[in-house]
Design a binder for these strands. Sequence first.
DNA 1: AATGATAGCGCAAACGTTTGTCTTATTTGT
DNA 2: ACAAATAAGACAAACGTTTGCGCTATCATT
Lengths: 340, 340
Amino acid sequence: MPNKITTLKEIAQRLNFSVSTVSRALHNHPSIGLRTTAQVQKLAKELNYEPNQSALLFKQQKTNTIGVILPNLKEEFFSEAINGIEDVAKQNKYSVLIGQSHDDVEQEKQIINAMKNQRVDGLVISISKHTKNYEHLIAVESYNIPIVFFDRVPELSNINKVSSDISEGTRQAVEFLIQNGHKRIGVINGPAEMKSCMERTNAYMEALQKKRIKIDLSLIATTDLTQEKTCQAMEELLNLKHPPTAILTINDYVALDAIQYARKAKLKINKDICFVSYANLPITNYVEFPPLASVEQFPYQQAKKAAEIVFELLKRQKKTEGKPMFKNIIIEGKLVIHKK
Amino acid sequence: MPNKITTLKEIAQRLNFSVSTVSRALHNHPSIGLRTTAQVQKLAKELNYEPNQSALLFKQQKTNTIGVILPNLKEEFFSEAINGIEDVAKQNKYSVLIGQSHDDVEQEKQIINAMKNQRVDGLVISISKHTKNYEHLIAVESYNIPIVFFDRVPELSNINKVSSDISEGTRQAVEFLIQNGHKRIGVINGPAEMKSCMERTNAYMEALQKKRIKIDLSLIATTDLTQEKTCQAMEELLNLKHPPTAILTINDYVALDAIQYARKAKLKINKDICFVSYANLPITNYVEFPPLASVEQFPYQQAKKAAEIVFELLKRQKKTEGKPMFKNIIIEGKLVIHKK
DNA sequence: AATGATAGCGCAAACGTTTGTCTTATTTGT
DNA sequence: ACAAATAAGACAAACGTTTGCGCTATCATT
């Protein structure tokens, strides 16, 4: 039963019309008679006609596909992001082609090249951790393929990007803790090179100053995200003369490690010591002592916005509007207090 | 700097050859002179020529793309599976188009239809939880698009599928627990409709019989995977006259819910009660009391095998070999004991 | 009755590539 | 020197669709 795929020609032959008439009839073109249109549409339905996408794409010189390149689908942040992109794509009747760089610059280059050859109409990218050189990225743009970065974005000004700013969320977190009576608030931050870590430290200090609480630099520890370093940071903090009663941790994984350490030190979570973290992974729903609150970074929204910008750029290039557009959208992280 | 994309025509015009000569030269066709070939290849390189994929695909009537439809990328099981498929696809110079059904039959139909219209060359599918009717799936095959199911597979014989059998893993799990001194082993299973749940129950009972342990049906509870039902199941089990000292849970999420419940009931995990679960998600590395062991179901291998079968089918259909092929690969789940 | 408008449809080109066939010029064999 | 063989490249068709243009018949207007 190898069902033959119906083409316009097939329909045209059966009804003794020309291919162009059939095509127009299917599009309800006014210059085709009603009877003809009806006939064509009826037969098309019977034969289950569907336009051959490759033919269409070929003719229109576009693929109706946007490419997405991100480090790793396994991180919930990114698989959630995909959903944002897919939703926008679906609205625009586009498909999404996904590539994972696995944080490897070489793979990233390969994927980008493959996507260029596939002629994706646009790209949404979260660059790999180690990408410092952006030439292979910019190269794509010169082929008229708009490219929008999200979350992990290059430090360039003449590009379109969507990223998050955790300053406001951090402020909210500190104020939340102060309102709950905490005066000594610790931080387990990541490496200072990361932009977000700078933001965290600065916002933390500003928030304290605003509330007239003296800043104690010994309350700021760092980790490289490994469990070992996190425990070390906890050790430092807990061994202080006046240890903190609350701690901000760079992300949920670190939070969980830290919480575990605190429990081993016989501290009662949410009583002797509280935790507030970043990212708000669903994983925290599954642990006994999740952080009190998280600064959410909205992967869905970030990615969605990035995809929307891609489509905006696509519409612009159709109109050949002259002036280039460089959007730099910042999505503010917000504190989400976990319901007990 | 709108870099124009190079075509064969462009090269032909510049060198004053015909398009066909250029095409052949690039393919090192013997009937093209060496000088000409060299000239063409040189210019092609300079102009950064890359064949227009859509034109190729259109001409060849194939897309070099396989579609993957699965319930949800957020589940690590599936994002891991994607990697298996991508690796095989990459080897065969294919792209992967991903669609998520979100366990919704309607969306599944839409995606399948879209992929058919996109003319994907083959499909790898893990069907949605609620898919009972397989017509929309089989329909695709009649368009000569090979389709291979994995993990969640229809109960049909004339299809290609890769799934896992957890019987052996379950047996191993039960024996492992018995060796560790457990005699009353409970089960929190999923809905009985699911094939894997049947397998679990049967293997569980067989393993007990083999070890001459009497089967007590009250030790088998069920959940619909929600936290609420899981807690209910735990309540039943713990309220038994002789409650279990170990419990098999259908998956890691359920395990974590169950463990949490047990802790609230003041039970010492791994002392008063042990847990063994299925799937072995990385999430369990981040909780204080993970299950003792998991039955691993190898998403990467399952998906990889499924993709390989797709390509085998594609090769067959090129040779128009007559007899159809129906592979039913079963990958055995294995017990993985978590290192403390 | 002659002219113009209009409705309804067909023709053909175009997108980029591959490939079977045809053409031309050169070389080979005798 | 002439036929035959070969080498090197051109021509054209095809894949399915859309779309500008052209054609014909019908109808309305004067």
